Simulated scan of single mutants.
Amino acid sequence: MSTTADLVAALKKELKAAGLTYADLAGRLGLAESSVKRMLARGDMPLSRVDAICRALRIDFADLARRVADAQPLLTELTQEQERAVVADRKLLLVAICVLSQWTLEQITGAYRISETDCIRALAQLDRIGIIELRPLNRYRLKLAKTFRWRPHGPVMAFFREHVVLDYFAGGFDGPGEGLLLVHGAVSRAIAPSFIERLQRVAQDFAQQHQADQKLPEKDREGYTLVLGVRSWEFEAFTRLRR
């Protein structure tokens, strides 16, 4: 659906919510009812006409556009090109990771040595890439679904494997609120996917707790990184010993 068609669909909903008929709208616009019906049925009209209908319905065009944007389906995965753009610049990657945690511009520049100008530039680039919708006062709406994940073999995970994995697992996992579990076993192939679903729920719980705790003072919060994974795998040194 085109952007204009989305706006027209939203206008139809506003018209119905206001309890107005096509005849009522036609009267406010100074048009024939048949013209209004034809215009709305096509789902395509100049933005100037959309604006005129907004005034007739006494709604703000910006609010209507925002509702349309909020109703768009959220992304569960980026394209190769989008991910490649994210990892091409380390500052952009940093800001991207921060917006995934819903950090504000003030939080990002307060925690990292990145200027406000560079941060705003990164936010604008993330808007162009399609990860966020940048709004006034450098606020934004995340356009990623709760089930979003980086592409398993995409540029971001390749960067993670090359630069992050060893650094992450080099830790002792023995600090407050830390832990590392390594469990191996042979289970039914039919039951294995259910463990993935449980891990996804844990990840969602973690993300939701992060959102809920944003209201706490900075001193009462600590940054944690949760890594979950399960795969059919055997340590290569053990595989070499198999009969």
Rank of each mutant, 00 (worst) to 15 (best):
R198N: 06
R198L: 13
L199P: 01
L92I: 05
R135I: 06
V187A: 08
E133N: 12
P176C: 08
R161Y: 09
R121Q: 12
F195D: 00
E77M: 13
T109K: 01
Y168F: 15
L92V: 10
Q200F: 04
R128G: 00
Q125G: 01
T79W: 05
T117N: 07
F160S: 09
G110N: 08
I120V: 15
R189Q: 11
A190H: 12
P193R: 07
F173G: 07
G177D: 10
L181F: 14
D70Y: 07
D167G: 03
R113L: 11
R128E: 14
E178F: 02
D70H: 08
A122F: 08
I131R: 00
M157I: 15
F159W: 14
N138D: 14
D118C: 04
R121C: 06
G179S: 09
Q209G: 02
V95P: 06
I131K: 00
L126Y: 02
H163Y: 11
Q82W: 05
G171V: 11
I97Y: 00
V187R: 00
D118A: 13
R128K: 13
G185Y: 10
L181V: 15
E83S: 02
D213P: 02
F206G: 03
T109A: 04
R128C: 02
W103T: 00
G175D: 07
Q211A: 12
V99D: 00
A170N: 15
C98P: 08
S101D: 14
I131M: 14
Q200P: 04
Q125M: 08
R121P: 01
Q82I: 11
L100K: 03
D213W: 05
C98V: 09
I114C: 06
G185N: 10
G177I: 04
R113F: 14
E178V: 07
R135Y: 05
Q200A: 13
A85Y: 01
F206C: 03
L78V: 10
G154D: 09
T104D: 05
Q209H: 12
V99T: 14
